[in-house]
Design a protein around this nucleic acid. Structure first.
Lengths: 212, 212
DNA sequence: GTAACAATGTTACTGGTGATAACTTATGCC
DNA sequence: GGCATAAGTTATCACCAGTAACATTGTTAC
């Protein structure tokens, strides 16, 4: 593996092109959005010719898809880190973590969910990564249902509602339609709580605000 | 106004370029998404040179913004047509109409809310059109609150929750993350109802399902 | 009516992009 | 060492947004 111990020496073979391209694409995405990602510009920054990238990514969209995959994995890890000891806290926190992720990484989040630039059904790994992240949300809701904390409505319905809520709030805030967390720190909590309180099992309704 | 009575005659001046470009862009958007809109292609289809379009649209984004404006106006009209006689029916229906619009016009909806391609604060008419559409939703909620049907929580919070919910559901379904109305006809109703039931005033909770 | 002007077209061009073909060089395996 | 293959290279195509300079038409003042 040449160039590893002497990175300054110009070698014909780069040795780590895919990973470096991925990393640089992620940084460009973060700063300037997905439309700013050009294979030619990436190649020039890395110091390689543009067609070299096509040895590792079948096209531009595939590179974007790989970046989006790591985005979903990152989101999933954050969701998995939520404390699950209390059903209510877990539900609220997972919603807040979800929204926070989108607000901290708006361009990455837009890439992950911008159905136009990365359509479903084209990149299997991307679809899977998205599903895995979503699964954490669903598992948390299922757990709260099994404990009897939320109404026994169909899990798919409850999950769809929760996901729609946090995803909608995320999108609307990062696009400036609704005030961001900076301007309205408690908006996300209020919104998530509002949905949650409509989903409580009856015996939980009276003391629902004691645990928050 | 030459060429009006004899539309087949080739005239140097087109006479209706902006409107025809707008219309054609809308059709292209509907069928193939905003990324398929190219000023050159539009010009060729209309039978005019590409730079001619720049006499009427300062750049590509401005054309897209104009299309998005008409999209918001169309959405607003649909929301205004909702029957407002019953607070509950009005709230549910306005949510369903909102989601239906997105599902019937996915590419248009994506353009309207794809913050990446049309950022806020750049096209004042677009921002205004979006605000006007949103206002219909807020007014409906305010009305229901004044009648005492929903909890007296801050209007901005209630509105943010409702908008987040329908917007999130719209996005997730048109991008294939959640089943569309075709696969799950009652999903939208269930989701909207779930949020609504968490927002009812206390005296409405027992007979909340009699009016649906 | 015509001259001046503004509006709306035109061709020619620049710089940038994704993608492919054909060629070259290094790597690793036998 | 020799050779297949992986991973680079240059050359090229087709498309795109946008600008400059020029041409034509419509309108308005005189």
């Amino acid at each position: 593996m040449p160039g590893k111990s002497t990175p300054l020496k110009t070698t014909y073979h780069h040795g780590d092109l895919p990973q470096q391209a991925h990393q640089l694409a992620l940084e460009t995405l973060r700063e300037h959005g997905d439309s700013a990602i050009s294979l030619r510009a990436l190649a020039k920054q890395i110091g390689v010719s543009a067609p070299a990238l096509y040895r590792h990514f079948i096209d531009r969209e595939s590179l974007l898809a790989e970046v989006a995959v790591t985005g979903f994995e990152s989101l999933r890890e954050r969701l998995l880190a939520v404390d699950q000891s209390s059903p209510r806290l877990a539900l609220v926190d997972i919603g807040l973590v979800y929204v926070s992720f989108a607000q901290e990484e708006p361009n990455l989040y837009r890439l992950m969910f911008g159905g136009r630039v990365l359509p479903r059904g084209v990149h299997p790994r991307l679809d899977m990564a998205g599903k895995n992240a979503f699964q954490v949300l669903e598992d948390t809701i299922a757990r709260a249902q099994q404990v009897g904390y939320v109404k026994p409505i169909p899990l798919s319905l409850m999950t769809a509602a929760a996901w729609s809520m946090v995803h909608g709030l995320a999108q609307l805030t990062i696009d400036g339609h609704l005030p961001s967390a900076k301007a309205e720190p408690h908006l996300a909590e209020g919104v998530v709580t509002l949905l949650l309180d409509g989903s409580l099992a009856n015996n939980e309704q009276q003391h629902k605000d004691t645990s928050s």
